[in-house]
C-alpha cells in the first residue's frame, strides 16, 4: 500500500474541510434558510455544521489520496503541504473570527 498518498490526501481533506467550515459559517449566518435547514435536519445548526465538515473531510481525503501519485515524502512537497495546513488553519481563524467581528461591529 502506498501510504504517502494518505498523508497528502488527509492534508488536502483538511485544507478543503477547513475552508468549507469557514465558508459555511458565512453562508449560514447570512442566509437564514441555510441556518434553518441545518437546524431542522440535524436538530441543531452547529451539530449539522460539524457533521457536514467531517463528511467533506472524509470525501476529499479519499479523493486526495487517489489523486496523489507520490510514493515518498520529499522535502519540497512536504513544505508545500505544511504551508497548506498552516494556510487552512489561519484562514479558518481569520474568516470565521473576522466575519463575527465585522458582523458585531456593523
Amino acid at each position: 500500500m502506498n501510504s504517502t498518498r494518505w498523508v497528502y490526501g488527509s492534508i488536502i481533506g483538511y485544507f478543503i474541510a477547513a475552508l468549507f467550515n469557514s465558508i459555511l459559517v458565512v453562508i449560514k449566518e447570512t442566509y437564514e434558510g441555510v441556518h434553518d435547514w441545518l437546524a431542522t435536519t440535524f436538530t441543531h445548526h452547529w451539530l449539522g455544521q460539524g457533521i457536514l465538515v467531517i463528511l467533506v473531510f472524509l470525501v476529499f481525503t479519499f479523493i486526495g489520496a487517489n489523486i496523489v501519485k507520490d510514493t515518498e515524502l520529499k522535502e519540497s512537497k512536504v513544505n508545500v503541504y505544511i504551508a497548506l495546513a498552516i494556510a487552512a488553519t489561519f484562514l479558518s481563524i481569520i474568516i470565521i473570527g473576522g466575519f463575527f467581528l465585522i458582523h458585531f461591529a456593523s
Binding site: 498523508v7 460539524g50 465538515v53
Partner: peptide
C-alpha cells in the same frame, strides 16, 4: 468564533494519527 473554529481543530487532530 470558538464554536465554529473548533471543527477545524477537530479535523486537524484527526489527521495526526493518520500521519
Amino acid at each position: 468564533t470558538k464554536e465554529h473554529i473548533f471543527y477545524t481543530g477537530l479535523i486537524l487532530a484527526t489527521i495526526i494519527p493518520i500521519i
